[in-house]
Amino acid sequence: MTLASRKTPPVESLGQGLPPPSRGRPHNGRPQGLPLLLRLCALAPILLSACAASPTPTPTQTLTIFAASSLLGAFTEMGDSFESAHPAVSVALNFDGSQSLRAQIEQGAMADVFASANAEEIEALAAQSLIATSQPFAANSLIVILPSANTAGIQSLADLARPGLFLVLAANDVPVGRYSRQALEKLNAQFGADYSTRVLANLVSDESNAKQIVAKVQLGEADAGIVYVSDSVAAPDLLTLAIPPEYNVTAEYPIAALANAPHPELAAEFIAFVLSADGQSILEKWGFRPVK
């Protein structure tokens, strides 16, 4: 569904024919809304830990998965599927920023599997022999999100450079924030050399993670934000502006079993499940692209 069908002015046509804002995620079979608890997590990271663990009473073994915050929806579902296939196993999920998870592992936190949003953290752990091998399991790219009311009337990526807009990005030190700035630079080729400078002049906040960006856009406090596609899928009430693949930045998510995993066989099984057709379709449903 496009904005035009919502009685808003027709989308200005751009020279290169960039896609107009669209409602919801650009993939098929998106989840129909999220439980309230999940939404709250997006607003207050403090609550995250509270809703992460979901033990069942019978199992004898607990498989501990550390996963990047952006995997919240996908890996919660993944954990449920894995548990139904392994009745004796309980999957404990710990979601946090990839850097924080890495720090926790470095400080001796016990985990079986680490699914990171970027390669750096995995490489750092490998350098300390905390991880033997890793492999990419999903790809995530960037998307512009707008509040459903779109009071700023943003119709295209070019509009992001309009003075006076409230734009929120992740901080430059956070991977998604770094990728967002890279994508804006690439878009200079399309909209002029000063495009990214003009867009960044509208920056009102460097958020610590994508959930904070989603929350501020959802509340209408920010006019636009840039997040992973998977984040926008988890917030279907937002409008989105796609960033064409040639300007987009793709983040490859690596997954690895930890060298001192308490349950190495189960860890390997879980990773195999993530890479299986079933696992990949769950990821796709939550906005990730499969890796070949």
């Binding site: 901080a171 956070v174 460097d206 610590s208």
Partner: peptide, 21 residues
């Protein structure tokens, strides 16, 4: 208030973001 250096980034915010940096 969000977090923007020189405008809204106070010490506790800088400390929190310092983890990433």
């Amino acid at each position: 208030a969000g977090n923007l250096e020189g405008r809204t980034q106070t010490m506790p915010l800088a400390i929190y973001l310092g983890f990433e940096r």
